[in-house]
Amino acid sequence: MDEAAAATETPPPASSPQEAGEEGAIRTRALTKRYRGGQLAVDGLDLTVPAGSVFGFLGPNGSGKTTTIRMLMGLIEPTSGTARVLGRPMPRHTRTVLPHVGALIEGPALYGFLSGRDNLLRQDAADPTADPRTRRARVAAALDRVGLAAAAGKKARAYSLGMKQRLGLAAALLQPRRLLVLDEPTNGLDPQGMREIRTLVRELASDGTTVFLSSHLLDEIEQVCTHAAVMARGRLVVQGPVADLAAGARGRLVVTTPDPAEAARVLKEQGAGDVTADGDRVSGEPPERDLAEVTAALVTAGVRVRGLGIERASLEDAFVALTGEGFDVAG
């Protein structure tokens, strides 16, 4: 918990504002959105997405993630506060900023009566900075990149959810982008598709594109992201490098043994807190002393030990510790 809180206070060096251009790909200050009904969707958000990072944006449903993304894309006017994307304030500079941003917002939306290729041609025609002479070639390349080249001529209404998702991604990749905003990009994809998307995200990131990724799949964030932020009830709970966040939740000592009752007793004696036994697994908060001594104590007490080790905390543990709730509970 403590380390995690520290991560919030220490912004990553890349985001220190020495020059206007060095303020990160996305930077919001006290960004707030109150809907007309009086509902506070986003409350004083200070978010900094370092340039070149793969940034995971986490939070339960209804925590304000999508509202934040919509404000960043100039679709929604903030009630107060500021949002800067690629160094320019939004929504005032949508016309200069957005051509450099590829976005997948709240799932794909397609024209069912148009083919996949025609959907992309239309999307590209909507961008006044896109060169019509290279349009067909860029659309073909984008379709190829997401593995849809074979289905390009099919009407989009015949696409499966996974294919629609891929087409949405292709639309975000029509131009070389400096920032990709991907809202739940692996939704509806099979495990193979998810792996492809992860590879794609890593590839794009290694080209220097900043990727802003919202997902409810924590292991996905853990696998591809360098930085992450967690939202709950419209507020930012924590942000920082993923390694620091995961370190915030302490690992647990796990003993596998056919004598769980005796093992639990010894562990408590040795100073382990919160000891729980589940079948042949006994776990607890690791004591301060050397684990070798704990092992010796267990063996001396006649406990037959099959395995003993520290289970590293996952981001999910960190998340639950931070939000104090299950992940899919609506905020």
Partner: peptide, 15 residues
């Protein structure tokens, strides 16, 4: 990533 920031990432963001 931090180290390369000024070279690659921030350069892409700057003017």
């Amino acid at each position: 990533l931090r180290d390369e920031g000024p070279v690659r990432g921030v350069g892409a963001v700057g003017e």
